[in-house]
Design a protein around this nucleic acid. Structure first.
Length: 393
RNA sequence: GCUGGAGUCGUCUAGUGGCUAUGACAGCAGACUGUAAAUCUGCCGGGGUUCCCCCAUCGUAGGUUCGAGUCCUACCUCCAGCA
């Protein structure tokens, strides 16, 4: 299903975008979900991550109840297990994992950063050598292979295979890397064969204005169904560098295509990203924080480095033993409507999976509610005010 | 009552004459941004000026020894077997 981005309203003072990602069937009509609802999803949007074809600890029904649009899965991990052939024989990723909404597959580009780096420098022009984290065997992933796998997985949106360089990479390294990522994008596009699948390009270039501009312009020149901004929020990258990366990329991206800020999911970064023209985000943080006992709560705190960061509570802390109130009174999620902090504390102390489930539901719903509030603010041309309020909460 | 065995942090445990008493669990906190993450890190006898220092400590009390959780004696407690 081809995706079309409809830009509905731009906030008058900030330029933040409210729109819809609309998935079209072969006839160009809005596609329908099995339950009869239209396959169109409002932006700004937060996409929950289901790396191994499951949002960890949640059933598809539980994911759906958080009201998400698109969800993610990962090419590298599904390539390794169970293998693209198996998913294809299962009838594609949607059928395999029983998720009938849109799915975006990351290309494995992030694994170039998280798995290949810090081992050996094994990134070549041809592709990337991995040492399997499962059994140590040698793996080789190329742009062509990544796209072919994604074609087989039959996700709705495939991502170009890019290098996601560490935040510590210097200008010279980044320049080479950005140029290679562009060549990889072209190679991937050339073999992309799934007519029902969209292919997104990725802008790289670290915090450098000229590299981001060049990367964006060249990637757009190749022509993709949507564009993402990559290489942010790695290592100890400071917020300023992330915001620069967005500011230097966005002006060179077309207005009528989705803009995806990859891997970003701190509430403050969503708010800042949207102000700078980003439409969609994904992040593992709500589900990972959940498994580690943390619940996102409304507001901002300041880190030791002086940067704004999400507020959260650790339900494993002893002080919640007898706290019989919900995580957030005003939250409409399943966990907040039916369970107390004391109960979730108890589950986490006992290592009961249901604790992680409840916290995952809350954290995902928290971010999606945040995007819902952002949309309302944009529609009413009150985004600057909303942001101000959020940052001072 | 007799014989044998055993007592080490909240719990279990390593230790068999030599530097700072081991590890696990529990407990208390912290970290986490396109998931090698239901993981990782720190603390975990007491006190202080807490990257350092002082004091205490292997059931209790003595003893042997330059040096004892470790060897000896007595006692206490527990376990097993026998009465």
């Amino acid at each position: 299903m081809k995706v079309k981005f409809e830009l509905i309203h731009k906030d008058k003072t900030t330029g933040a975008r409210y729109g819809k990602a609309i998935f079209l069937d072969e006839n160009g009509n809005v596609a329908k979900n099995p339950d009869g609802t239209m396959q169109e999803y409002e932006t700004p949007m937060f996409m929950p991550v289901g790396t191994q074809a499951t949002v960890k600890t949640l059933s598809p029904e539980q994911v759906k109840a958080t009201n998400p649009g698109i969800i993610l899965a990962n090419t590298y991990h599904l390539w390794q297990r169970p293998g693209a052939d198996i998913v294809e024989r299962a009838g594609g990723l949607h059928k395999f994992m029983n998720w009938h909404g849109p799915i975006l597959t990351d290309s494995g580009g992030y694994q170039v950063f998280s798995l290949a780096h810090n081992k050996k420098k094994d990134i070549t022009e041809e592709g990337v050598h991995f040492k399997s984290e499962l059994n140590g065997s040698k793996l080789f992933l190329t742009p062509e292979e990544s796209i072919k796998i994604q074609n087989q997985l039959d996700s709705d949106i495939a991502m170009s295979f890019d290098e996601c360089p560490p935040a510590s990479a210097d200008y010279k390294y980044l320049k080479n890397s950005v140029e290679r990522t562009l060549r990889w994008a072209k190679r991937g596009k050339d073999v992309h064969a799934n007519k029902n699948q969209n292919l997104f390009g990725i802008v790289q270039g670290g915090p450098y204005k000229d590299l981001r501009k060049w990367s964006a312009e060249q990637t757009v020149a190749l022509g993709f169904d949507g564009y993402s901004i990559g290489g942010v929020a790695n290592d100890d990258e400071c917020k300023d560098d992330m915001y620069k990366a967005i500011e230097y990329s966005v002006p060179h991206l077309p207005e009528d295509k989705l803009r995806y800020l990859m891997g970003v999911g701190e509430p403050v970064d969503l708010v800042e990203g949207v102000m700078r023209g980003v439409d969609i985000f994904d992040c593992v943080s709500p589900t990972r924080l959940a498994r580690h006992g943390n619940a996102l709560i409304w507001g901002i705190r300041t880190t030791e480095k002086g940067e704004p960061k999400e507020k959260r509570i650790n339900l494993k802390n002893a002080k919640f033993t007898d706290d019989f109130t919900p995580i957030e009174n005003e939250c409409d999620c399943y966990a907040c409507k039916h369970y107390t902090k004391a109960y979730i504390h108890h589950l986490m102390k006992c290592d009961e999976t249901f604790g992680a489930t409840l916290l995952s539901i809350h954290n995902i719903r928290f971010l999606i509610r945040l995007t819902e509030k952002m949309r309302e603010a944009i529609k009413n041309d009150r985004y600057a005010e909303f942001r101000e309020q959020f940052l001072n909460s």
